[in-house]
Design a protein around this nucleic acid. Structure first.
Ligand code: SF4
Ligand code: SF4
Lengths: 132, 132
DNA sequence: CAATCGCGGACTTTATGTATCTATAATAGT
DNA sequence: ACTATTATAGATACATAAAGTCCGCGATTG
């Protein structure tokens, strides 16, 4: 029951992209250097963000990744869901019957966490990031 | 990033113990039957609950498990922490420095979930459980 | 064309979760 | 004291997921 490291990498990358002034594509090599991850692995993670519509990629020389939507809209939850998936943390016997009280409590608590993550946008704290 | 099945078993067992009228020890065999788990495996999980002080065990004939504290006090969070551990879901570079904004957000969201789990006591919904 | 760069699949390696088996220790009833 | 019962702990086996690598393909720039 932990976030995968991939989530960590995705969050840091997105934070960098949101905080960056320009809108030029940034190569995965450059992004990977800042977090000492192998570029190929980071690329695999960022592809998930592309498919989720958070960023877009440009192939070929001078290519890389850049934000797709408005930078003010990027929330923590979107990133986490793109990497970890949107399934519930609590998967019981399959039947998501709303009769079960245990199930309801677990879902409600999970929703409380997601609400906070949905409400917090990356741009809110992009300035607190140490200059790179 | 999912709760382990062990958490599920622990929650159901505790729910049963809280909902039960008597305070007599219940054998692991009986508890395991209700959830189709192997008794030895369930025993290993319940031992964690014992060490966490939630229940107590009685060896020997007529032994088993029973609640230790007051039945009104058992919260979801205690059980989950006993099984999954109390470590943060988001383990980054190790330094829990409060300067990092990302870290703060992740911890805050996690705390929101835990708050809900801490506030919800098992007894509140013990009656909603189907009679067994 | 040639160098650059993201994409995708296959693969290896760890780590964790799940589960069983067995031996040991403690207790109750006889 | 003896025996049946029951929790505990360790070893072991298996399954699944996470973490990371490798390589070839296709797209793009200059
Ligand atoms: S919590 Fe409810 S839905 Fe989930 S396994 Fe238990 S009874 Fe089924
Ligand atoms: S979130 Fe903050 S504390 Fe965690 S790894 Fe990133 S910089 Fe370090």
């Amino acid at each position: 029951m932990k976030y995968s490291k991939a989530t960590n990498y995705a969050l840091h990358t997105m934070m960098y992209l949101v905080a960056s002034e320009t809108n030029k594509p940034v190569g995965v090599q450059q992004l990977a250097d800042k977090q000492d991850v192998s570029p190929t692995y980071l690329s695999k993670i960022l592809t998930k963000l592309v498919k989720a519509g958070l960023i877009e990629s440009a192939s070929g020389a001078g290519g890389g990744y850049r934000l797709k939507g408005r930078r003010e809209d990027v929330s923590f939850l979107e990133i986490i869901h793109a990497v970890e998936g949107t399934a519930s943390l609590f998967d019981c016997c399959g039947n998501t019957h709303s009769q079960c009280a245990i199930h309801r409590v677990m879902l409600a608590s999970e929703e409380a966490m997601e609400q906070k993550l949905r409400d917090t946008k990356m741009i809110e704290l992009a300035d607190a990031l140490p200059r790179k």
